[in-house]
């Protein structure tokens, strides 16, 4: 009986009209567009949840230190990259009538081996994110390091991408090749595909 009965998605109250057999519920609910969005800021400190439309106001009111730059092609200058410990650099880039959150994170996944992870996430749905591509470029002293990918949606977040190294990854010695006066410039280009 359980296999034939169809159950409503747990986000029915938020507007999801889909009903499904029990064994398909979990997978659907994980990617359901009516699932509340969590705060896209890295680090698990902010517990905010809400609708997609409420994310930008939340960032503006609760995370005032995050600055926004207009343009499809910008340079994200992360300062003091030699700061010890787990550190994040976050900014927003607005173009094509969307906001993209750029995150550079320094972490010690393996003890004694600090690495930098850089990724871009769209303040939008997964479907909207699939319509874009982003390009991160480190360049300097005759060297160039480029990563191109599809931005994640804030619905998925970037924690998983960072955990799976599915982003720009480089360690501190590589960072030093491109850094100047302890600052690292990342050229970020967003394009429609």
């Amino acid at each position: 009986v359980a296999q034939t009965v169809r159950f409503p998605c747990k986000y029915a109250s938020s507007g999801c009209e889909i009903t499904l057999p029990h064994q398909e519920k979990a997978a659907h609910e994980e990617s359901c567009e009516f699932r509340p969005y969590s705060c896209p800021c890295p680090g698990a400190s902010c517990k905010w949840q809400g609708s997609l439309a409420a994310i930008l106001p939340h960032l503006m009111h609760q995370h005032k230190s995050i600055t926004t730059l207009q343009g499809e092609d910008i340079v994200f200058l992360a300062t003091a990259i030699d700061l010890p410990g787990a550190v994040d650099w976050v900014m927003m880039q607005s173009c094509f009538d969307f906001h993209f959150m750029l995150v550079l994170e320094k972490q010690e996944k393996y003890s004694g081996h600090q690495q930098f992870f850089a990724a871009v996430q769209l303040i939008g749905t997964r479907k909207q994110a699939d319509g874009f591509a982003y390009r991160l470029e480190l360049s300097g002293h005759g060297r160039r390091l480029i990563w191109e990918a599809t931005p994640r949606s804030v619905h998925e977040g970037i924690a998983m991408a960072i955990m799976n190294n599915d982003c720009l990854v480089f360690d501190t010695s590589v960072a030093q090749l491109f850094a100047e006066n302890g600052n690292l410039g990342i050229n970020v280009t967003i394009s429609k595909c």
């Binding site: 800021c41 890295p42 680090g43 698990a44 400190s45 902010c46 230190s65 600055t67 730059l69 207009q70 343009g71 092609d73 910008i74 340079v75 994200f76 200058l77 992360a78 300062t79 003091a80 990259i81 700061l83 410990g85 787990a86 550190v87 994040d88 650099w89 976050v90 900014m91 550079l104 600052n183 410039g185 050229n187 280009t189």
Partner: peptide, 24 residues
């Protein structure tokens, strides 16, 4: 076509994790 220099923004390090400790 002159190559327009992309706009640059200085981003300070942010210890989000520390933000929680700060709030406790």
């Amino acid at each position: 076509r002159t190559h327009r220099m992309p706009k640059e923004i200085r981003v300070e390090p942010h210890k989000f994790a520390a933000e929680l400790i700060h709030r406790l």
